[in-house]
Amino acid sequence: MLLALALLSAIAPLATDMYLPGLPALADDLGTSTSSVQLTLTTFMAGLGVGQLIVGPLSDGWGRRRLLLGGTVVFAISGLLCAIAPSVEALVAARLLQGLSGGAAIVLARAVITDRTTGDLAAKLFSMLMIIGSVAPVLAPVLGGALLGPIGWRGIFWVLTGTGILMVVAVLAVVPETLAPERRHGGGLAAHAHNLRYVLGNRRYVGYALTFVFGFGALFSYIAASPFVVQDVLGLTAGQFSIVFAVNSLGLMAGSIVNTRLIGRFHARQMLGVGVATLLVAGVALTLEATVGGADRAVFLPLLFAVPVAIGFTMGNATALAQSEVREAAGTGSAVMGAGQFGLAALVSPLAGGSAAGMAISILVCAAIAALSLFTLTQAPASRTDEAEPARP
């Protein structure tokens, strides 16, 4: 079941990165502009966030499995629609549908783990998802580049269609319903609004969720700006950048692996503190090196490597701790984190820019907000809204 959930969680980087090498060919084939083609990526990312906000709260009332099956079926259909799209407008619409259904897969994978596990075990499982998920951004563009020649950009969407069908089979075979009927909440907009207030009223949840969101913001600041910084500022070639990106992705994987080995000997909150502190120190050092030290590659690149390593100690633990605070509305809690994650990613991408200083400052600001959230909000005593119950039938 964990492997199936990992596939569901990895669908976002697969559907984002696999077709990137084919964007120029896509623009030529459909006779459209670069900006129109980039809109297919923007709408997909928007769909990921909105899909989580819709499906997460619904799953608290309807259960996980039916929505998970529906989401994976729609994902497979949307891949087919992308593959046969006759125009860029049709492709944009199909990518929005693909994002909405992909968001459903992500939010429900987190909710299923929350239904089944608590505490350090949940943190370990979320970290294992991070390990598997960190492979997808490395392999997806490489796989897409290899497939582009023989099957073209439409063929890549056929591959994503096949991945969607594999997801449907995996859910049918190994993912049971994990939310018992007696734990489900009342339906309707009023109930969803109540559950949202219940989740956002828990200050400890908000603290851990903000740590998760801004930790990802620091990571995405690196992802968005690093192609320009590594090549234009540090003077490396495109091939050398690919090596740097792959090594840093391995750093994310290594951090997640070490985290899973240490959980049990240390509490998830302690490991999260280590990750956030490391991220903050790396952000300070990168900013000083970019603004004062001249961005020497021998110094800058090792400091940059520390960012994904720190994230390996941050994301899984923050997810587990946040979800443990709102177990009775796990779908809503997962949706809020997912929407915040991709919403912030859309904001930091232009803010990080293409300069070493811009990227470093963006990482530092996100790390500082994550640290402030962790070390202040999660220390707060339970408020009256923390005591509130989620909506019931």
Results as ranks from 00 to 15, higher is better:
Ala90Leu: 13
Ala298Gly: 04
Val299Trp: 12
Val365Phe: 03
Glu177Lys: 06
Asp296Val: 12
Ala173Phe: 08
Gly294Ile: 09
Thr332Arg: 13
Ala238Trp: 06
Val168Trp: 09
Arg65Asp: 07
Ala290Leu: 06
Arg392Ile: 10
Ala382Pro: 08
Ala224Leu: 10
Ala136Glu: 01
Ile11Leu: 14
Phe245Lys: 10
Val244Asn: 09
Gly133Trp: 02
Val247Lys: 09
Ala10Lys: 02
Leu286Asp: 04
Val309Gly: 00
Phe212Gly: 08
Val107Asp: 01
Gln341Lys: 07
Ala25Ile: 07
Val88Thr: 12
Ala94Gln: 06
Met45Ala: 13
Arg203Val: 13
Leu210Ile: 10
Arg197Thr: 13
Gly343Leu: 07
Arg297Glu: 03
Leu81Val: 14
Ser256Tyr: 04
Leu58Val: 12
Leu41Ile: 15
Pro13Thr: 12
Ile223Pro: 04
Gly63Ile: 01
Glu387Ile: 05
Ala306Gln: 00
Asn317Asp: 04
Tyr19Leu: 13
Val348Lys: 08
Gly273Thr: 08
Thr40Lys: 07
Leu68Trp: 06
Ala12His: 08
Val174Trp: 13
Val229Ser: 09
Val159Cys: 06
Val336Ala: 07
Gly338Ile: 07
Leu100Glu: 01
Pro393Leu: 09
Val247Arg: 05
Ala277Gly: 10
Ala6Gly: 14
Gly51Val: 10
Leu81Lys: 03
Leu200His: 02
Leu129Cys: 01
Ala388Glu: 15
Val365His: 07
Trp62Ile: 09
Ala25Arg: 15
Gly275Phe: 00
Val135Gly: 01
Gly99Glu: 05
Gly207Trp: 11
Gln98Phe: 04
Thr114Phe: 00
Ala310Ser: 15
Asp386Val: 00
Gly79Pro: 08
Leu234Pro: 03
Leu262Ser: 02
Ile369Met: 00
Val171Cys: 12
Leu41Pro: 02
Phe313Arg: 00
Gly70Thr: 11
Val135Asp: 00
Val55Thr: 12
Leu100Ser: 05
Ser349Gly: 13
Val365Met: 06
Leu125Ile: 11
Pro302Cys: 09
Ala330His: 11
Leu100Val: 11
His192Ser: 14
Val299Ile: 15
Ser33Asn: 06
Phe228Trp: 07
Val206Ser: 10
Ala209His: 11
Thr211Met: 03
Val92Gly: 04
Leu160Ala: 07
Gln341Ile: 03
